[in-house]
Nucleic acid binder design. Structure first.
Lengths: 262, 262
DNA sequence: TACCAATGTTCGGCACGACGAACATAATAC
DNA sequence: GTATTATGTTCGTCGTGCCGAACATTGGTA
């Protein structure tokens, strides 16, 4: 992971280091002028900071010389940048803040955020995008909520999305599905749409042969006590699958069906 | 909105002000010793800060005297505290961070967070709790995800929750079960959206000043034995209302509860 | 080559925020 | 009422980070 180097820098020095890091990514080497302009500080302040960073062996620097990062400096800078990006990412992707705003906020907060919280931010983005109840489409509902539904608090958009998803038995992108599971998860009586059948032959061959494609509905009819075998119905056919076979079939459960009351 | 007073304080002075605010909530008046202990700074540093705060007319202070907040000071302090609580709340309720950790993180970050982002944090908590695809139960899945599923990324717990809801057929449309009541009717833990605030000044003025409008979420936190006073949370603020005041606030019990199965 | 503009550095100064030591006041004990 | 202790204040100092002014270096150019 991001082994936070044991260096403890002031917020100000972190800013300088980050600035150098970013400049070096664009130009061959950083010059005091660039730093001064980027951070909007006087030239003399830059020199002072450079001394401080050089003392800590984070940059290669001697008067009038070009400025580059040492390995240690690169590591520390990368960590600062990482904090920045995690925050900006979270603001943009989860909180639906617009880019420039998110960036400037990240800039201010990156120096104050503890590692534990930072990790949670990362994990939360993961979670939202992986959770069957979340998904990228769901999180977009938040932007809509902020702009429109906040006053009523009804989250109309999401209700709409849910209904739409349930009604159109269509599976599109994996990230947009409601509940992606494998066939073994279903209980008798439940129906779901096929998303993917992994493997090359065997069960895949058989299903394709009988006309099953993405979106085809499968119904689980019976499951043996130990979950093996599983009897399913598909396209009018009754099939019995081994558990291992069922595991290779990913389906989307039309989970919110019950919401749809006429 | 939360009219951020035009005062621009340093992070350090905000800390002092917040400390005083909190001490005054517990004791009749603040003493330098308490502040010194709470913030872990020398006694002489406290005196310096007190002068700075007094210069800005945020506290009533003269040497050797007791320390109280001016009205202006109360407003600024409340804003700082509000930022703190919003952050802590978000960390605890959404990111599933434990209390002490969340509190210390909020302490560090409260000085750096821009208003725009803060609002989004508030709105996000609202959103999650109101959206038919979110809900308090769903967000609990995040804690589980962090502890268990992170490695596999499967979000097993949520798959389970979705299935359970689908099977119990308990999911209904969010807007179906709304009830118009006054604040006194709510029980601790319940949330509702403001419909109307009657009266002309007093509580109405206060609520409007802090940005409460139709649709703003109110949560009842605690109710004293005889129903008076009532502690509520609104827009990140914690407020204590007299019963008569609460009666003048009409709310609509929000519909996210139905998602939670009996 | 000699000069000039751009860039970099040094220096002194300022504001902030913290500290410890010494002094002042308040509170309590006797 | 005085002695003692707890608490509060003042003062000088330090470190950080910023600035502008003056000085130094560089690199291009006349």
């Amino acid at each position: 992971m991001s082994q936070t180097p044991e260096i403890q820098l002031s917020a100000s020095l972190e800013d300088y280091l980050e600035a150098i890091f970013r400049i070096v990514q664009e130009k061959p080497a950083a010059r005091a002028k660039d730093i001064s302009k980027r951070l909007e500080v006087g030239r003399s302040s830059v020199t002072g900071a450079l001394h401080a960073l050089a003392d800590r062996e984070l940059i290669n620097y001697s008067p009038y010389d070009l400025i580059t990062l040492t390995d240690k400096g690169k590591a520390v800078a990368a960590d600062v940048v990482r904090r920045h990006e995690v925050l900006r990412d979270f603001f943009v992707r989860v909180l639906a803040v617009d880019e420039p705003e998110a960036d400037s906020a990240a800039c201010k907060m990156e120096h104050a955020i503890p590692e534990v919280i930072l990790d949670r931010f990362i994990e939360f983005v993961d979670f939202v995008e992986r959770c069957p109840r979340g998904g990228t489409k769901w999180i977009k509902g938040f932007g809509y909520y902020c702009d429109n539904d906040k006053k009523t608090g009804n989250c109309e958009k999401c209700v709409g999305l849910v209904l739409e998803e349930v009604r159109s038995r269509k599976v599109t992108k994996a990230t947009e599905t409601q509940a992606m599971v494998t066939l073994v998860t279903l209980k008798p009586g439940e129906k779901a749409a096929i998303v993917k059948i992994s493997g090359k032959d065997g069960i895949r061959r058989r299903l394709l042969d009988m006309g099953a494609t993405t979106g085809t509905l499968v119904e689980v009819e019976r499951v043996a006590p130990l979950g093996d075998p599983i009897e399913i119905k598909i396209k009018g056919y009754h099939l019995t699958l081994r558990k291992e076979e069922a595991e290779r079939i990913t389906v989307e459960l039309s989970g919110e069906q019950p919401i749809e009351r006429a």
